[in-house]
């Protein structure tokens, strides 16, 4: 029974994850690969060369990671309190507020790009990393609130009430109850926010105005290339960056939170 489950699980992951990624890796090294060959007939590193020769690659990596980190930070700062209210309080018009907070990801990006740009120009953050960071909040905030809301619902308010009645301060409640208990939510939110921020092209292009060169700014134009190897190599790099980021975050988390409380909450 157990073995059957594992082999089923493995084939699903193989199909949905390993196969496409392996296919991309092979494509990134292919020079000649036409129908009906199963594998390329000629191999080369042209795809990766185009990537390495990109003069702004390292600048873009730095900018992307920096902006991603800021966006994650602000998201946590705004989303955490809002999610707590939505999880524990009920009040008039709650469904409306919930739907409203989900709006940014429900509307077509093209429809709001112009309005967002005008706002950014008026408050003086257009063509600046700050504007880009602000605009990246739009597609990420709803996810953060959602993730933390279900996190809070899972934990429940019981511990908080208990601790408060025993005389704990709000700060203590936060650091010793919610922070460790919500660590999985923090992980998921951080990762998702970073991935979304990284892949914003249209908004970054218009608001950043070319002054803010993120990885998406150099990656997306290559997607209209005819050369499959170039597209594949850029895509792989693009997917690798969030993994690197989450590794850094993981180290930070372990530095701040005692290891024991981490293992306790992991299922």
């Amino acid at each position: 029974m157990k073995n059957r489950h594992y082999s089923f699980l493995f084939s699903i992951i193989g199909l949905l994850v390993f196969f496409p990624v392996a296919f991309l890796i092979v494509t990134s090294f292919a020079l000649q690969w036409t129908w009906p060959q199963i594998l390329p007939t000629e191999w080369s590193t042209i795809g990766w060369n185009a990537l390495i020769e990109e003069p702004k690659l390292f600048l873009a990596l730095r900018t992307s990671i920096g902006i991603g980190a800021i966006v994650v930070f602000i998201n946590l700062a705004i989303g955490f309190p809002a999610a707590k209210v939505l999880a524990f309080q009920s009040f008039k018009g709650k469904s409306f507020i919930e739907a409203f907070l989900l709006m940014p990801i429900l509307i077509p990006g093209l429809a709001v790009a112009m309005g967002l740009h005008l706002t950014m120009i008026r408050i003086g953050v257009a063509d600046h990393w700050a504007g880009v960071a602000l605009v990246h909040l739009v597609p990420t905030i709803p996810y953060t609130i959602k993730i933390f809301r279900s996190g809070f619902e899972r934990v429940g308010s019981f511990y908080e009430l208990q601790a408060l009645s025993l005389g704990a301060s709000q700060k203590e409640v936060f650091t010793s109850i919610y922070l460790p208990q919500l660590i999985t939510s923090i992980r998921s939110a951080t990762f998702l926010i970073f991935v979304i921020s990284l892949s914003q092209y249209a908004l970054t292009a218009i608001i950043g105005g070319g002054n803010v060169v993120t990885l998406a700014m150099i990656y997306f134009p290559y997607l209209s290339s005819v050369n499959n190897a170039v597209i594949a190599s850029f895509s792989l790099l693009f997917a690798g960056i969030p993994l690197l980021f989450i590794l850094i975050i993981e180290i930070v988390i372990r530095m701040f939170i005692p290891y024991r409380s981490l293992t306790n909450t992991q299922q």
Binding site: A113, H117, I121, A126, D127, A205, I206, G210, V213
Partner: peptide, 28 residues
């Protein structure tokens, strides 16, 4: 030289918005 890759459509859209907001100094 700072080469920025962007579709001409989007470049014009950016300029158009800037014009609308009376932005005197752009980036292009």
């Amino acid at each position: 030289l700072n080469r920025v890759a962007m579709d001409t459509n989007e470049i014009l859209q950016k300029l158009m918005n800037e014009k609308r907001a009376n932005q005197e100094e752009g980036t292009i």
